[in-house]
């Protein structure tokens, strides 16, 4: 690989001030063939980090290990000081502080955009009031509409989610994450299922909203220009290890392209 790594930062200990601190993380789906092994990294509060790598490099697996949607084999994960790999009650508490934007949006297609955004309030323990917008108190409905307004879709609040375009669906998913009031937002290839223009628009909007709210963000992407443009820091996975960890300002797209060769 013909890349000069600008910096490789792998802290041995889990940092106390880090928003996300991962140490010695290993995951394999097939015994003896780890997707990644002994990954150690800290994500600073308020930073936007792009996680890149070729198909199968383990970006999405690593991202999903953070809220324990995938169970790691070994290692430690602390999010905002809490142990993610601890008891399930503690895990649920940690998850409420993490927003997750999925590549396929993961909206309930039969429900309205507004109801899907109202679901974000479940992270704050509203119970039955956050199942459907028709059951939700006025304050929650207004807040959900406001979140939809922030992604430019207030006018489509009553529209069924399965009648929205891919870009609109992803905006609703972002609004749902905002509704959650998370401190950290993880996004798994948020623009990958969109056409280039919609993908650029969604990424611009996503990054702008995240910066406004000073969220800590980790997003995976195959789009190198998105990684350089919207992230403060780029981490590349390859061969199950971190092969690059650098501030994005010091990187050029051609350097990153070499990682895929």
């Amino acid at each position: 690989m013909n890349v000069e790594f600008t910096s490789i930062k792998q802290s041995a200990e889990v940092g106390p001030s880090a928003a996300i601190a991962i140490s010695g993380l290993t995951k394999s789906f097939t015994p003896g063939m780890p997707v990644f092994s002994d990954i150690t990294l800290d994500i600073e509060p308020g930073s936007i980090v792009a996680l890149i790598g070729a198909n199968g490099a383990g970006k999405s697996t690593l991202l999903r290990c953070i809220p324990r949607l995938i169970e790691p084999d070994m290692g430690k994960i602390r999010v905002l000081g809490s142990n993610v790999l601890g008891p399930s009650r503690e895990l649920r508490g940690v998850r409420t502080r993490i927003g997750f934007v999925f590549q396929k949006h993961n909206l309930v297609g039969r429900l309205s955009a507004l109801t899907n955004v109202v679901h974000g309030a479940q992270a704050r323990g509203f119970g039955a009031k956050a199942w459907l917008q028709s059951l939700a108190p006025q304050s929650i409905r207004k807040e959900a509409l406001h979140c939809l307004g922030r992604v430019g879709l207030a006018a489509m609040a009553a529209q069924r989610a399965d009648q929205l375009s891919g870009g609109q669906s992803q905006r609703v998913a972002i609004a749902r994450a905002l509704m959650q009031h998370p401190e950290i937002v993880l996004a798994d290839e948020p623009a990958a299922s969109l056409d280039p223009q919609a993908g650029d628009e969604v990424m611009q909007l996503f990054a702008a909203l995240m910066r406004q709210e000073a969220k800590t963000v980790v997003f995976t992407s195959h789009n190198l220009s998105h990684s350089l443009l919207f992230a403060d820091r780029v981490i590349a996975l390859g061969g199950g290890k971190i092969v690059l960890d650098s501030p994005s300002a010091r990187l050029r797209e051609s350097e990153l392209r070499d990682l895929y060769v």
């Binding site: 998850r95 927003g99 997750f100 679901h119 479940q122 749902r176």
Partner: peptide, 8 residues
């Protein structure tokens, strides 16, 4: 998506 946000 709901599991990830800590829904019951």
């Amino acid at each position: 998506a709901l599991t990830a946000m800590g829904a019951r």
